[in-house]
């Protein structure tokens, strides 16, 4: 019972949605499926929030190493949640100023927007920007011409990187742009690499992925792969 009903649900829902592709009367089902998912995922926030609270409250009550950081997590979590859910500081909606809950929760002027602007955005954007540093260290450490494959990888990266600065095109500017060797100008060369080699490689990867996804989906729908239900083998 514990395992059978879920398998029946998976198979039924899956079959219905696949059939919907070929039966016009059911064509709206796939859109519904996507909306339903987003709703369930939003409800699941209760579980995520519960997990977050449990982890950090435990650290706090155990006085674990670094419990003060758990206090920061919990504090910032609750403050953000409260100001967001209760729309604290939200200006009225100009079209309906008489309805107190009609204003936007993230309008400029709300406390929630302040948190977004001065906490959320700088923190996440800086984390994103850290990538530039890691790219440099990866280029230094990992791009070594150990074998022919590695030479291809770093050689291509080299050409493309060069082609994206003003220096690159300047190096090959002496090649006449209309002649037979125009293709060797750096900007043309990097365009050619992207256009031909990159397209070929990406196409094969994408075709392979599609096959992998089809086969994985099929196994899931047939109940062969049910690890997500805790039925690994």
């Amino acid at each position: 019972m514990k395992r059978t009903v879920p398998l029946i649900i998976t198979a039924t829902v899956g079959l219905l949605l696949i059939v919907a592709n070929f039966v016009p009367a059911l064509s709206e089902l796939s859109e519904d499926g996507t909306t339903f998912f987003s709703i369930i995922a939003a409800i699941a926030f209760v579980l995520g929030g519960g997990s977050l609270l449990k982890v950090h409250l435990k650290k706090l009550s155990d006085r674990d190493r670094g419990w003060a950081y758990s206090l920061i997590v919990l504090g910032s979590f609750f403050v953000t949640l409260v100001v967001g859910l209760f729309k604290i500081g939200a200006p009225p909606n100009p079209a309906y100023p008489d309805k107190p809950w009609a204003g936007g929760y993230n309008e400029p002027g709300t406390f929630f927007n302040w948190i977004y602007e001065y906490l959320f955005y700088p923190l996440t954007a800086t984390m994103f920007a850290m990538l530039a540093f890691y790219i440099a260290s990866a280029a230094f450490r990992a791009f070594r011409a150990k074998n022919f494959e590695a030479i291809l990888l770093l050689g291509t990266a080299f050409i493309i990187l060069l082609g994206q600065t003003a220096a690159g095109p300047a190096l090959t500017n002496w090649i006449p742009p209309d002649g037979p060797f125009a293709g060797l100008r750096l900007e043309e060369l990097s365009a050619y690499v992207m256009d031909v080699f990159n397209t070929a490689g990406s196409r094969a990867i994408v075709i392979g992925i599609a096959l992998g996804i089809a086969s994985t989906s099929l196994k899931i729908l047939m109940g062969l792969d049910r690890s997500y239900l805790g039925g690994g083998n």
Binding site: L47, G48, G49, S51, Y228
Partner: peptide, 19 residues
């Protein structure tokens, strides 16, 4: 990074330990 993934991962790992 997602609540639902946490749910599914717990099921899987629990079953693996059981096995």
């Amino acid at each position: 990074s997602r609540s639902l993934v946490m749910s599914a991962a717990r099921e899987t790992v629990e079953a693996s330990y059981l096995t």
